[in-house]
């Protein structure tokens, strides 16, 4: 592969394809594991596109292939009009990636990290420093500019890592699990940041294990599991496939959980599933009224409830609805809204 080919200009005519990313039949195996097993993907320009899947689904591998970090075993793809296999250097001029794990130099300060990258992109002297300072301000990190990154909090690190991908405004920004490990406030901040970027015209491909994240941010969602795409659509389409009103119930006496399941199934006409921990039931309940009546029936039978809530399906339940099997190991705790 000719990695040292001269960079292609961003605005070359090649760049005119309607999709930011277009992939066909991507495959990548590690030994016996088919991490990505024949994925097609079309990401229109200017949208936020989420790849949703449990641990080990192949999200990172898919993204690394598209970002020229891993070579596909089979398949083809173009990113911003550049062919992934024959013109990886041109692809690199048009993308930026923030990986699942921080790709920063912990020993350097936040500003030094950004100045380093700005210089690598070709900003000189003062221009590189100015670019770094602009980004530090935009990402609310000016106060920590001269601190070593090893002293940053998780949220600050994530912001700096994303800022590091924006030295030059990329055509496509890859974000691998941008909010995993962040507290709710930091997560909301990163979401706001991602929306702001999308508004300024950057195409964003992000991966996530959280249904809510995909739901909140993405115009389109692809669900992948075991290296295969099992569904794709808008959040509304995916939920319609699953049903949106889920009733979650916990009985005060765990021994009566089965009895409660029977009553709910009879009332609501759907199958109840137990949470992974086995202490809770989830069942599709068409409307709030149906759910209310079902709860009343439980109380009528003298079954005391320790907790109940109405909510969105968990990732587990989306998987269940899409595949007929529980998701590989999508824990309800993480996935519930």
């Amino acid at each position: 592969m000719n990695d040292t080919s001269p960079p292609v200009k961003l605005n070359a005519p090649l760049d005119a394809s309607p999709n930011a990313i277009s992939a066909r039949g991507l495959v990548k195996s590690f030994g016996d594991v088919r991490a990505v097993d024949g994925i097609d993907l079309d990401v229109p320009r200017g949208i936020i596109f989420a790849v949703l899947g449990p641990n080990g689904a192949g999200k990172t591998t898919l993204m690394r292939m598209l970002a020229t970090l891993t070579r596909p075993d089979a398949g083809s793809a173009s990113v911003m009009g550049h062919d992934l296999m024959t013109a990886p250097h041109a692809v690199r001029t048009a993308i930026a990636m923030t990986g699942q794990f921080a790709s920063l130099d912990e020993d350097l300060t936040g500003r030094e990290n950004l100045v380093l990258l700005a210089r690598l992109w070709g900003f000189r002297g003062r221009a590189a420093k100015a670019r770094a300072d602009d980004l530090l301000t935009a990402f609310d990190l000016s106060h920590a500019a001269t601190k070593q990154v090893k002293d940053y909090s998780g949220g600050m690190r994530r912001r700096l890592d994303i800022a590091a991908s924006l030295i030059v405004t990329p055509g496509v920004l890859f974000l691998d699990e941008p909010t995993t490990g962040l507290d709710p406030k930091a997560r909301k901040d990163v979401w706001a940041m991602i929306r702001g970027l999308a508004d300024s015209g950057v195409t964003i491909l992000l991966t996530t294990q959280y249904l809510e994240e995909a739901d909140q941010l993405a115009a389109r969602i692809a669900v992948i599991d075991h290296g295969k795409k099992i569904a794709e659509g808008t959040s509304r389409e995916l939920k319609a496939a699953t049903g949106s009103g889920f009733l979650h119930v916990a009985t005060a006496d765990p021994a009566r959980l089965d009895e409660a399941a029977g009553i709910l199934e009879q009332r609501l006409g759907h199958r109840a599933s137990r949470s992974t921990e086995g202490a809770e039931l989830s069942i599709l309940a068409g409307t709030a009224k149906d759910a209310n009546e079902a709860l009343a029936a439980l109380v009528g039978q003298g079954i005391e409830l320790s907790d109940f809530s109405m909510g969105q399906p968990s990732l587990d339940e989306v998987f269940f609805a899409l595949t007929g099997q529980p998701g590989a190991d999508a824990g309800r705790k993480e996935a519930t809204l």
Binding site: L10, G122, A138, L166, M193, S200, G201
Partner: peptide, 19 residues
């Protein structure tokens, strides 16, 4: 929060001459 408003103001930055 402040980030969003500032980010929306972030101008599009193109690449300087290839180093």
């Amino acid at each position: 929060m402040s980030d969003t408003s500032q980010l929306q103001k972030l101008p599009k930055v193109t690449r300087p001459a290839t180093p």
